[in-house]
């Protein structure tokens, strides 16, 4: 079974920071990033197992780090689309945003986000966050 963290963020530096953090702590996960919600949906639809002939070992566990403010399809719309689709309703989605507005946090949880994390400006903190996320949503499934 493979683990994969998908980061959806239009900010390339943030992607670099998360990638760096993952590399520095050496988690056994693959990493993918998309600059917008549409691309995530396209990708994830193409990856859905339509039949049961794939063995359990070949299945990949995904976790989505979703930014809220993005051009075109933003994180809110993307999240609501994911939650409306039966097969993705259990997909762990962690909102990863710079917004600390109470309204954003509340709305995200209401729409079915699994967690809301405020982007840190410190690589050490980011490492800690990635570690927690991995152990909470991905590691336990092994």
């Amino acid at each position: 079974m493979n683990d994969c963290i998908i980061m959806v963020d239009d900010d390339p530096e943030d992607v670099v920071l998360v990638k760096t953090a993952l590399k520095r702590i050496g988690l056994p996960v693959s990493f993918l990033s998309f600059p917008s919600g549409e691309l995530l949906l396209d990708f994830i639809v193409s990856q859905t197992p339509y039949s049961h002939h794939e063995s359990v070992d070949e299945q990949t566990n995904y976790l989505v780090l979703l930014d809220l403010n993005m051009p075109k399809m933003d994180g809110r719309l993307c999240l609501s689309k994911l939650r409306k689709t039966q097969s993705f309703s259990q997909l762990p989605v962690v909102i990863f945003s710079t917004s600390d507005a109470h309204e954003d946090v509340k709305k995200s949880y209401e729409m079915g986000a699994n967690s809301y994390i405020y982007k840190p400006d410190n690589i050490r903190e980011l490492e800690k966050i990635m570690n927690s996320i991995y152990h909470f949503w991905l590691f336990k499934k092994h």
Partner: peptide
């Protein structure tokens, strides 16, 4: 935030 994050890195 990026300036701070990368400078600290």
């Amino acid at each position: 935030r990026k300036i701070i994050a990368f400078s600290r890195l």
